[in-house]
Amino acid sequence: MLTLLRDLRRLRQTAALPRPDRGRSLALRHVDAGSCNGCEHELTLANSPYYDLQRFGLGLVASPRHADVLLVTGPVTSRMREPLLAAYNAMPEPRRVAALGDCALGCNLLGTHDALVGAVDEVLPVALRISGCPPRPDEIAAALLALIDQKNQHAP
């Protein structure tokens, strides 16, 4: 166990991102609306020791009721449309929707008309667009940090 913790400390020291200098936080809730699982794999690693989004106040929360940002991956499938709307409707205001990955942005969608609704912005108002197939963990981190900066600018 000590070896593990020592390894983790070393990893964090050599992490790719700079130390946090921001004072705010955002609670994120992820919804997979039909992705290939690539965005999920990269989002998971954005929380691994190399990136460690929590250091910047970016935490993934278990319920949309605790979330500021709904992070949506994948093209929206017809079967995920209702659960996605239910998650959005469960969020307190103010709330933001972030579309994560090219599918969520509606690029090169693969599938049939019956099975797919389309890009996330056909269902919800999208405030942040993170492109990539899939976007790398550092790209996800950079985009979300920009959202915090934006929030700080608007703060009184």
Partner: peptide, 11 residues
């Protein structure tokens, strides 16, 4: 499952 069914085979 199949919430993520995209109809890839048909497409």
């Amino acid at each position: 499952l199949f919430y993520k069914h995209r109809g890839l085979e048909r497409a």
